[in-house]
């Protein structure tokens, strides 16, 4: 490993620090190799079940209502009536104003309620307001908070501000888990994504997350690989296991399995767990269900057979 990667490593105050630079061509090639793995039959079914248990069922629209959130929670509680033995999804992810509704609907199910906060998706609000939003979400019952970093400040080179912001939000979260959204589609080069990942992990993130889902490109494979490698290096340095959540753009079971292969090959078996890996997605669950039914029945399924 490059010697400079070892240097600054003493908590959030350590920024600015040096992250290793990323070989973009090498990342592409590694991804292409991992995508060529063939996962079939029993292994595929197992991967599909695992993927299902890692989904954060998400609705983040301006038009979200209590009814829409209750409907989504009903879906989380019963993914497909014909298959009662399925695992449940990891969490339901909503806006702060709807956390209470989701919390009541999911009472006692073991499904977490996640809330985006900190002026999602742009993050362009004063810090006090962001912190208040986080506190309100946690008071309403959010088990997990998905924050966005201030990309404007980060891209302008104000790493200290970004680190402080993440640390303050972490403090406001209390016991709730903190996922830090880097919004990789706005960060540009893989080097910046690696730097942001390192920064977020050193500043108190429990999870790092690619995107809000509002910007394209979102969770592309190369971006996720770079973040996974950052998590691996962080673990090797500190022994801390940080979770990963790709979000946006993963809509097919095939994509999900490719992601799982990449996680397994980069971080190992431990990360194949909803506590350390999540998919942020709204339409992925139905495609995974479709594939599970196909795998069990041998018949290709229609989306018409699955609830919204």
């Amino acid at each position: 490993m490059e010697p400079h990667a070892q240097t600054a490593d003493s908590g959030p105050q350590a920024a600015p620090f040096a992250s290793p630079s990323i070989d973009a061509v090498g990342v592409e090639e590694r991804v292409a190799r991992l995508c060529s793995r063939s996962i079939k039959k029993e292994a595929k079914l197992q991967a599909l079940h695992l993927a299902l248990s890692m989904i954060d069922l998400t609705t983040l629209e301006g038009a979200d209502s209590e009814g829409k959130v209750r409907q989504l929670c009903a879906k989380a509680l019963q993914l497909h009536a014909a298959l009662p033995d399925l695992p449940h999804v990891a969490a339901v992810c909503v806006y702060p104003a709807l956390v209470g509704v989701a919390k009541r609907a999911l009472e006692g199910s073991g499904i977490h309620v996640a809330s985006v906060a900190t002026s999602f998706p742009a993050g362009q609000a004063p810090l006090e307001i962001k912190l208040l939003e986080v506190k309100r979400a946690v008071e309403a019952g959010a088990d997990e908070v998905d924050m966005v970093i201030s990309r404007g400040r980060f891209l302008a080179g104000d790493l200290a501000y970004t680190a402080d912001e993440i640390a303050s939000v972490k403090e406001a979260c209390g016991d709730a888990h903190l996922k830090v959204i880097l919004e990789t589609g706005e960060l540009g080069a893989l080097d910046a994504i690696r730097r942001a990942s390192d920064l977020a992990m050193r500043s108190g993130a429990d999870f790092i997350k690619t995107s809000t889902g509002k910007i394209k490109p979102a969770a592309t494979m190369p971006v996720v690989l770079v973040m996974l490698e950052a998590i691996r290096d962080h673990y090797l340095r500190t022994g801390q296991r940080i979770g990963m959540k790709p979000a946006g753009g993963i809509s097919t079971a095939k994509d999900a399995i490719r992601h799982l292969v990449m996680v397994r090959e980069t971080l190992g078996q431990d990360w194949l767990d909803p506590d350390l890996y999540r998919f942020g997605a709204s339409s992925l669950a139905n495609d995974v269900l479709r594939q599970i039914v196909k795998q069990r029945s041998g018949i290709y399924q229609s989306f018409d057979d699955f609830s919204m």
């Binding site: 041998g298 018949i299 290709y300 399924q301 229609s302 989306f303 018409d304 057979d305």
Partner: peptide, 8 residues
């Protein structure tokens, strides 16, 4: 057969 059985 796969086409005839396909639910879509």
């Amino acid at each position: 057969a796969p086409l005839a059985a396909h639910r879509d």
